[in-house]
């Protein structure tokens, strides 16, 4: 694994962009990696685009941002343009193709298209788990992360929600597995 693996993820406010990045960074730290995460968002109460940056590795620097990403994830069409500048030769690109329809800007990176919105709606009957599908796809693409330990960490993060509604646990796990298998 290279020294530091850099991840940028972008989407609409409310899609869970920050939660996904935070959970991944926290899980990496829990697995003994060095990790740092920083968000970027604007003043809108709703309707804004939100970005998150995470770095994972053996010696992660104090400075939380970077110029080019190793893993680049867009959850909405507007996100594609917003974080286009973080692409470099060899960046791995993952998109939520349910909302990202126009791939012309990123075609040469051969994006991995995950139809997470449709999968969540049709297969799981729960639109909100689309971000679990995306997280599964992302974790597959991050070198050095242990999948089983990651899923255990997820159980920990959502412990209070699972206590209220135990069926959520299986739903989230299945959605995560689905995304993992697709990437």
């Amino acid at each position: 694994m290279q020294e530091t693996f850099k991840i940028v993820i972008c989407g609409e406010g409310g899609q869970g962009v920050q939660s996904i990045a935070k959970i991944i960074a926290q899980a990496a730290f829990d697995q003994g990696k060095k990790a740092v995460y920083v968000p970027y968002f604007s003043t809108e109460k709703r309707g804004g685009v939100t970005e998150a940056f995470a770095q994972i590795g053996e010696a992660v620097p104090a400075y939380p941002k970077f110029a080019k990403a190793d893993l680049w994830v867009a959850l909405s069409q507007r996100a594609v343009e917003r974080i286009h500048g973080y692409l470099k030769e060899g960046t791995e690109v993952v998109v939520n193709s349910y909302l990202v329809k126009d791939l012309s800007l990123i075609a040469r990176w051969k994006p991995i298209e995950i139809d997470a919105g449709r999968i969540a709606k049709e297969e799981f009957r729960k639109p909100r788990v689309f971000n679990m599908v995306m997280m599964g796809a992302m974790v597959k693409r991050i070198p050095g992360l242990d999948k089983d330990r990651f899923e255990a960490a997820l159980d920990h993060v959502f412990a209070s929600k699972y206590a209220k509604d135990p069926s959520l646990k299986e739903l989230n796990r299945n959605a995560f597995e689905k995304g993992y298998g697709l990437a």
Binding site: A35, V36, Y37
Partner: peptide, 9 residues
């Protein structure tokens, strides 16, 4: 704000 909102060890 980076220092305030970032997470790290």
């Amino acid at each position: 704000g980076y220092q305030a909102k970032m997470m790290g060890e």
